[in-house]
Every structure is written in structure tokens, then in C-alpha cells.
């Protein structure tokens, strides 16, 4: 027979234990990622974007599409560049015509079916370009929702899609808060930026990093303490996108603004 005292004791311990979520015990920072040296893999790919340097030429988008065999005229792309223009009346205008495959060669803001909007130079408060790509999250929601194990996180942190295994259900496309996924027009499977996995494993830069004349894009290994990109991420002021989702994105931005989502 259990005594009343024991019963109350055990209940309190049980309730207290059950109320601590596993997530509360975990805190993941770039520094900890780097420190996890016992880890089998010595590489954790990360990306650094300097929005001050980006001029919106879109050479990265062009190079990415050609390198990764994404049909050139289909309106899908693994990486794209967004333009943000804040006017003196406080309005924010943003566009990315064709994902900036052809750059920004007009001052008119693309409004899709509503035409375009020309903003006078005098009305601009601030304006800049933001390159976007897959964040290769440490907690990738797209991987969690895949019902068949077709998308996964490789040991070096890059999220890949197994084209032969993907059933095309589209859960991952819905699950990504950054909207980086789409269906490949030829294979009809989920498609996404994979940091040019075939290039970075041969010691090359990604196609977008190599094509950027201004050094706005850089890739690095956060686990290598001598890596210049890792150094900037761990010692300088950088920001990430949609931190509140808890996805722990691994694309870091210099010069990010509150309008950028």
C-alpha cells in the first residue's frame, strides 16, 4: 500500500519533471556550434551576407541557375535578391523581379500585376539590396515535416533533398518560413539551395559567392577557428532572419534592417 505522503511526493516530482520541456535545457549559439569538437564532423557550413556591399547586379542569381540546372526562364530560383526602398512618407517598397536574375536595371519598383511604381530620388529615405538563400537551419522545419525521409540534414549542416526519394507532397515547401523551397520544373521534386554541395566539397566557393564581384556573399566553416567568416560571425554584429521561429538559421547578415523579413 502506498502512503498518502508518498503519493503526494511522487505526484509533485512527476508533475515537476514533466513540465520541463526538453527545449528549455538546450541553448545553441554559434560559439557552441564551434565548440562541439567531439562531433564526428569537423565542418559546419555557414553563410555571411554583407548588404552594404550588394549592388543588386544579380550575377549570383544567374550563376546559381546555370550552375544548378534550374530552368533559366522558369520563375523559380534557389537564391534571389530583394530590393527595399523606404520613402519619406514611411512606406516600405520591396520587389525582386524574376528573383533579380537580370539584376535591377530600372528605378521602377515591380508591383507584379499592378504594374510598377517609380520613386523619385528625393523621396528615398533608405534603399538597399538583400540577397536571400536557404538558411540551412540548425533546426530545419522542412526536414521535420518530410513524411518519407527525402529531405535531411547532412552531417555538415547542409539540408539536402533526395530527388529519388521525394514524393512531391509539398509539405516542406509550406513548412519553410523563409520560402526558399519550390518544385523543380523538370524533376517535380522539392528543390532548394544546398550551398552548391558539389562545389564546397571540392574546396570551391559556391557559384553565387564566386560570381559576386563585390564580396557581398561569403561561405565559411563555423567550426574552424581560423576561418575568416567564422571570425566575423562570432566576434562582430550580425543578424539572422526570423529568429522568433527558433529555426536557428545559419545565414548571417551584416546591415540587416527591421523591414527585411
Amino acid at each position: 500500500m502506498i502512503s498518502r505522503r508518498d503519493f503526494i511526493k511522487k505526484t509533485v516530482i512527476g508533475v515537476a519533471g514533466a513540465s520541463i520541456p526538453v527545449a528549455a535545457l538546450e541553448l545553441l549559439t554559434p560559439r557552441r556550434l564551434r565548440a562541439e569538437k567531439e562531433d564526428k564532423s569537423r565542418v559546419r557550413w555557414v553563410f555571411l551576407v554583407d548588404t552594404y556591399k550588394c549592388v543588386g547586379c544579380g550575377m549570383c542569381v544567374k550563376a546559381c541557375k546555370l550552375e544548378n540546372e534550374i530552368p533559366y526562364d522558369a520563375n523559380v530560383t534557389r537564391t534571389w535578391v530583394e530590393r527595399y526602398v523606404t520613402t519619406k512618407d514611411g512606406k516600405v517598397h520591396a520587389d525582386t523581379p524574376k528573383g533579380a536574375r537580370d539584376g535591377f536595371i530600372t528605378s521602377k519598383i515591380d508591383l507584379g500585376t499592378d504594374g510598377s511604381l517609380d520613386i523619385r530620388k528625393e523621396d528615398i529615405d533608405k534603399a538597399f539590396f538583400v540577397p536571400k538563400l536557404c538558411n540551412q537551419c540548425e533546426n530545419p522545419p522542412c526536414v521535420q515535416v518530410c513524411p518519407v525521409g527525402a529531405t535531411y540534414q547532412a552531417p555538415d549542416g547542409v539540408v539536402l533533398v533526395d530527388r529519388s526519394w521525394c514524393i512531391g507532397c509539398g509539405y516542406c515547401i509550406m513548412g519553410c518560413p523563409y520560402g526558399v523551397r519550390f518544385f523543380h520544373p523538370v524533376y517535380h521534386t522539392a528543390e532548394k539551395c544546398n550551398f552548391c554541395y558539389h562545389r564546397i566539397n571540392k574546396g570551391l566557393q559556391t557559384a553565387c559567392v564566386q560570381a559576386c564581384p563585390f564580396g557581398a556573399r561569403r561561405i565559411g566553416n563555423i567550426k574552424d577557428p581560423r576561418d575568416p567568416v567564422a571570425k566575423i560571425i562570432t566576434t562582430e554584429r550580425v543578424a539572422i532572419l526570423k529568429e522568433e521561429y527558433g529555426t536557428k538559421p545559419q545565414v548571417y547578415y551584416i546591415g540587416l534592417d527591421k523591414e527585411v523579413k
Binding site: L66, Q144, G149, A150, Y152, Q153, S164, K202, Q210
Partner: peptide
């Protein structure tokens, strides 16, 4: 949660053709 997959696919991606 994150690591349920076909391991051989990692090698498949590494073999992708470099153009640039």
C-alpha cells in the same frame, strides 16, 4: 527528426557537375 535519410544521396550530390 533531422537525420532519417538515404546516406548514399550525400555522395550523389557531391558528384553533381561543376560549371563555373
Amino acid at each position: 527528426m533531422y537525420g532519417w535519410y538515404r546516406d548514399a544521396n550525400v555522395e550523389d550530390w557531391k558528384k553533381f557537375k561543376v560549371k563555373y
